[in-house]
């Protein structure tokens, strides 16, 4: 193989992938990277500590918006010119739609969200969720050029090494997209990092109304954890921000403990909780699929079970408070 090109619109992912590629250099050939968009030169400088031997820098106005077609045009030219055989892309939202665009331009096969990445002999073998998350498809791209977008957290966090790698200004043609970004708005502040939380309370449509959220927030607090949710609570109802949504189209988590409340357990959701060490499910329906995904199940109404569980947990912690919580207040 004649080399790897690494690109991501998220610098830390580019660093991780760059370090991964550098570690596989014997098999995959020289690692190179591309840094595109605003402040590209400065960001490329930071990239030099992660093992790429060449870093291509492009801050042409046509790519500052990072639109897929413009970025794919630059990457396609680099692939051809540098005789690249593997392109690793960070599977952010942008990366997920960039990768297949680039693949089509290069007539290449593509994995658009690998959650496993490894070498088997001389092949890069990837794993991705398939059948809505029921299965993991392990596969390898057999076209001469392979495009693989890699989900955050799939390869090890890179630690910076010796600073090396030449910075090269991209001098090829940059074709602007016919589309244009006309506005950017920050999403309401990101409050939490579900992917790294140790304890999660994940709530679904068993929650009857937004006003009842304190019920699960209290439990999360008693556990020292965070509240997460299913897609309907975030996308459809807007009760909780998207960054708390778990599943194939949301966060994947790996807490020590996940308490799943009023969640049916559809596969598109449960794919995101597979990494949990222990899962507790609370659901009124004995037949709810979530119980098949759980270690411990309580069949019951969350409006009865959760307050009791919260009180017991608070009691355990506070010694004396335990008595208080289990005794009628007044």
């Amino acid at each position: 193989m004649s080399g790897v090109l690494v690109y991501s619109d998220r610098d830390d992912l580019a660093h991780d992938l760059s370090a991964w590629a550098a570690a596989q250099r014997e098999v995959l050939g020289e690692p190179t990277a591309a840094v595109l968009g605003a402040r590209a030169a400065e960001r490329a400088e930071a990239c030099r500590a992660y093992g790429a031997v060449r870093i291509h820098v492009c801050d042409a106005p046509a790519v500052t918006d990072l639109l897929d077609d413009a970025v794919a045009g630059v990457l396609a030219e680099l692939v051809t010119r540098e005789q690249i055989s593997v392109v690793l892309i960070g599977a952010t939202r942008r990366g997920r739609s960039l990768a297949p665009r680039l693949a089509q331009m290069l007539e290449a096969g593509c994995v658009s969200e690998a959650v496993e990445l490894g070498l088997e002999g001389r092949r890069i073998v990837t794993g991705r969720y398939s059948l809505g998350g029921n299965t993991i498809s392990r596969e390898w791209v057999r076209t001469p050029i392979q495009i693989i977008a890699v989900a955050p957290g799939t390869v090890e966090r890179a630690v910076p090494g010796a600073v090396g790698g030449d910075l090269i200004t991209f001098e090829g043609q940059v074709n602007a997209s016919r589309a244009a970004v006309i506005e950017r708005r920050d999403k309401p502040g990101l409050e939490t990092n579900i992917a790294d939380s140790e304890r999660l309370v994940c709530v679904g449509r068993g929650l009857a109304s937004e006003e009842d959220l304190p019920l699960v927030q209290d439990l999360a607090e008693a556990l020292g954890g965070e509240v997460a949710c299913t897609r309907p609570l975030s996308y459809e109802y807007g009760w909780l921000p998207e960054e708390r949504m778990i599943g194939i189209s949301g966060q994947k988590c790996s807490p020590k403990l996940l308490v799943s409340i009023g969640v049916s357990g559809q596969v598109q959701h449960t794919v995101g909780i597979q990494g949990a060490k222990t899962i507790v499910a609370i659901n009124t329906e004995k037949g709810a699929p979530i119980f098949k995904q759980a270690d411990y199940g309580i069949v019951g109404d969350m409006y009865e079970v959760v307050p009791l569980l919260t009180a017991r947990l608070r009691g355990r912690r506070g010694g004396g408070a335990a008595m208080k919580a289990s005794q009628p207040q007044e």
């Binding site: 290449a108 096969g109 593509c110 994995v111 073998v125 398939s130 059948l131 029921n134 299965t135 993991i136 498809s137 392990r138 596969e139 390898w140 791209v141 057999r142 076209t143 597979q274 899962i279 119980f291 098949k292 995904q293 759980a294 270690d295 411990y296 199940g297």
Partner: peptide, 17 residues
């Protein structure tokens, strides 16, 4: 373009209690 080596459910090991 992409060869599938296997497509299986992850090995489950929940207690289901």
């Amino acid at each position: 373009q992409v060869e599938v080596l296997s497509n299986l459910a992850p090995a489950g090991s929940r207690k289901n209690q």
